[in-house]
Amino acid sequence: MITLENVSKRYETQEALTKVSFTIEKGTMAFVTGPSGAGKTTLFKLLYLAEKPDEGHISIAGFNTATLRESSIPLLRRNIGVVFQDFKLLNNKTVYDNIALTLRIRGIMERETKERVNSVLKMVNLRHKSDSYPLTLSGGEQQRITIARAIVGEPTVMLADEPTGNLDAENEDAIMNIFKRINAKGTTILIATHNKRLYDNTAKKVLYLDCGRLVKEAIR
């Protein structure tokens, strides 16, 4: 479902990723870990085509990113649900509208949108915050909204960048349970995290990044 071959990415001053290769099978829940600055977010940006690799090949959800036409990028992104590390919520729109946006962009009717948005809001336990604005919510609540937005489109691949960074243990478990649920339905999931607790007992595959290099790949 996700394949990287010798992928490198340089920013002006430094190498963020160096010759990274790995494969994540369809339906897997995998983790990327490593110290701050290791290149986890950069890896995600390459996967949802916010950045282009300097070298190497990437394929994700059946798309080869090198040969993908500019006009097909939206199509690729609709197949990928992303939980951004910095949330990327629209602060001038309500929680409901933020999540609904994913579906409205696809031209889905308001009635169906309403049903689906309310259902994911229930999943993250924030049904009552539907009409609030993001900045009036706690960090953990904003994070759960971001997760709800990523899953509402029922993507084939989910990329979650530090999805539990702001959550207490209880909410952390709740979110991991959601991920497990949608993973069980067949969604391939890649989670970037510092948090050992998340992948210690559950993970099938853990990728260890350090200074842009893939230093270890643990498979259970």
Binding site: S71, P74, R77, R78, F84, K88, N92, R149
Partner: peptide, 15 residues
């Protein structure tokens, strides 16, 4: 900023 988020969520240019 808003447009960038739209694009990341899969909005087409036309949209």
């Amino acid at each position: 900023d808003e447009i960038e988020i739209y694009r990341l969520l899969g909005a087409t240019k036309a949209f």
